[in-house]
């Protein structure tokens, strides 16, 4: 029971840090003024156009595609794989399981491999390409190690019969967390490592470069409409310079 309690506390703490941290960050970004029009042009001249530009950036990584096909394919494999894997994991938090979550189960399994392959490729670049080696700090390597470990422990539990975990009990534990009704967590080491790493990832999210996920939506070079001549764009602190004259 004690391990269940420890993990329950860890999950609540990590969720709090993740949610509160992201809310703080997003509010901070939203409240920081944007005094000048700086879209990278050619840029859309309507809000709808900007919405499509942003959609292309976050779904097909448009700028990265222009930039480097290796990083693009590896990064996209990782991110798209991760999205499917995360969606697949919804079955551990929902009862009954939503129909569309059932539908993507088979793909979710392959997505785990895609995610790991993408991550390994990205890590290889940090050693093999001298320019990328130069810009990588310890945290950049550890972040990849963390994500790869999460993917690997997950895949090992799925594919090595000896490391299968009691999914029914695990789901009961997770639902218990949601309904504040603590249930025992299966105590297989591989599961505990997997969950421990996930908790770590949740906690470092708002204090690390993982902030690129909310940050991209606030990037003025991508989210501004190119209409500087048609509309006056003025931030509060800049307006004060005018009233002081």
């Amino acid at each position: 029971m004690s391990i269940s309690v420890i993990f329950a506390v860890l999950f609540y703490t990590a969720t709090f840090i993740l949610v509160a941290g992201l809310i703080y960050r997003i509010r901070d970004y939203a409240r920081t003024p944007v005094p000048l029009k700086i879209p990278t042009t050619p840029a859309p001249i309507t809000r709808t156009g900007v919405a499509f530009r942003m959609l292309r950036e976050i779904t097909v990584f448009e700028s990265l595609f222009k930039s480097n096909k290796w990083i693009w394919i590896l990064g996209w494999l990782f991110h798209f794989g991760m999205v499917l894997v995360l969606l697949r994991h919804l079955r551990y938090f929902t009862q009954p399981v939503w129909a569309w979550v059932d539908l993507i189960q088979p793909f979710g399994i392959y997505a785990g491999f895609a995610m790991a392959a993408g991550l390994l490729g990205l890590w290889a670049r940090r050693f093999l390409v001298d320019r990328v080696r130069y810009i990588s700090s310890l945290s950049d390597h550890l972040m990849l190690l963390l994500l790869i470990s999460i993917a690997t422990t997950g895949l090992l539990m799925s594919y090595i019969p000896e490391w299968h975990t009691d999914i029914v009990a695990l789901k009961a534990f997770m639902l218990g967390l949601l309904y504040f009704d603590l249930q025992p967590l299966p105590e297989e080491p591989m599961l505990l490592i997997h969950l421990g790493l996930v908790v770590t990832l949740m906690m470092v999210f708002p204090i690390s470069k993982l902030l690129h996920a909310p940050g991209v939506f606030f990037s003025p070079t991508r989210n501004q409409v190119d209409n500087a001549r048609e509309k006056r764009h003025l931030s509060a602190w800049a307006a004060k310079l005018e009233s002081s004259e």
Binding site: T32, V34, I38, L64, D140, G215, P220, W237
Partner: peptide, 17 residues
Amino acid sequence: KYRGLKVFLDCCVKCGA
């Protein structure tokens, strides 16, 4: 004072692009 600056400093993942 500059949202762009703050976001740019936080966001970089060192992808190398």
